[in-house]
Simulated assay, not measured.
Amino acid sequence: MSLALSPQARDALETWLDQSRAIKGAAENTLAAYRADTVDFIAFMSHHHGGTEGLGPLSRLTTSDMRAWMAHLRAGGASSRSVARKLSAVKSFYRWLAERNGFEPTAVLSARAPKFQKKLPRPLSENAARAMIDTVEMQSLKGWAGARDAAVVTLLYGCGLRISEALGLCGRDLPLGESLRIVGKGGKERLVPVLPVARQAVARYLSLCPFEMAPDLAVFRGARGGALSPRHVQKATEAARLQLGLPATATPHAMRHSFATHLLSAGGDLRAIQELLGHASLSTTQAYTSVDTVHLMKVYAAAHPKAG
């Protein structure tokens, strides 16, 4: 599909991505999604107009062109959420391109994303979260590997880390103190308190780990000593949830969701939780208030004498 881009369009796209990386600190996964979505958009317009899309034709797109592209996506089975994500990437590119080249981008920027119901996080109960940590350890035949998996999942639940953040810890981060400086999405730094239970879990793993720790090497190692892969943690938690009879939503990321929801239930401040999670926007963290309200209403319905 990249053949549908003229050299000028390709250069413009790469310059925009480079600036998004340098100025906005966009994560590599985000940039890869931006590139793919924007290239697909330009490829569609090329086919739609019957020729390679240079910067000139791209600056003259109409509302009808945008409707045709979105209809094409829906006909291909794209969900409302997926269409909205792709449109967001295209709009970001067009805002930058229009400012750089001096054309009117209204037709693109005024395109409306389809409405969709945002998926709310599905946290585990406190008992289920604890059981997940205990059961994950039993999925490995080697004691050090079981302790490793339990330590990773404890960091997800006890510190609210993303799986990439937990697996990104290096020898220089050891020994864990009362707080940990985490570099999250977009290179944003945050300071995360480390509970004694998390420090103990990591210390226990380190005492059993057969590999030497070095400042630049990953703390969590695979069977051959290389950095542990996220897929391994996902498989270990999947085996544990099946053993516990938990739903498919009981993933490593659900442990992070559980961290936030349980803090909120205990009276945690939403802004503070936003900082701990490393969310750029408070609106992302506010999803947990909806989760907590749903839980509260279920408890009310079950317990209130007049609820029935």
Score class of each variant (00 low, 15 high):
Tyr205Val: 06
Ala32Asn: 11
Ser125Lys: 04
Arg204Thr: 13
Ala111Glu: 02
Gly226Asp: 06
Ser164Val: 11
Met66Asp: 03
Ala9His: 01
Thr106Leu: 14
Lys188Glu: 08
Ala75Leu: 12
Ser2Phe: 11
Ala307Pro: 01
Arg172Lys: 11
Gln19Phe: 07
Leu161Glu: 02
Leu176Ile: 10
Gly226Arg: 09
Pro123Ala: 01
Lys91Trp: 09
Arg95Gln: 15
Gly168Arg: 03
Gly184Glu: 07
Gly278Ile: 08
Thr249His: 03
Asn101Phe: 14
His232Thr: 15
Leu120Gly: 05
Gly50Ser: 05
Ser164Thr: 14
Phe41Gln: 01
Gly186Arg: 08
Thr52Pro: 13
Leu296Cys: 07
Met213Tyr: 09
Arg162Ala: 15
Ser64Gly: 11
Arg181Asn: 12
Ala22Met: 12
Ile23Asn: 06
Arg95Tyr: 10
Pro7Ala: 12
Gly25Ser: 07
Glu126His: 03
Met70Gly: 01
Pro121Trp: 04
Met1His: 14
Leu174Thr: 12
Ala4Met: 10
Met138Ile: 09
Ala33Met: 08
Glu189Leu: 15
Glu165Val: 10
Leu228Ser: 00
Leu167Asn: 06
Trp144Asp: 02
Leu58Phe: 07
Pro105Gly: 09
Leu208Ile: 04
His262Arg: 09
Leu61Glu: 03
Thr52Met: 12
Asp11Phe: 11
Ala22Ile: 11
Leu277Ile: 08
Pro196Thr: 05
Ala254Gln: 03
Leu208Glu: 06
Pro57Cys: 12
Arg10Pro: 05
Ser229Gly: 15
Arg172Glu: 10
Leu73Asn: 08
Lys118Gly: 05
Glu104Phe: 13
Gln200Asp: 14
Ser82Val: 06
Ser80Pro: 08
Lys306Trp: 10
Leu282Ala: 10
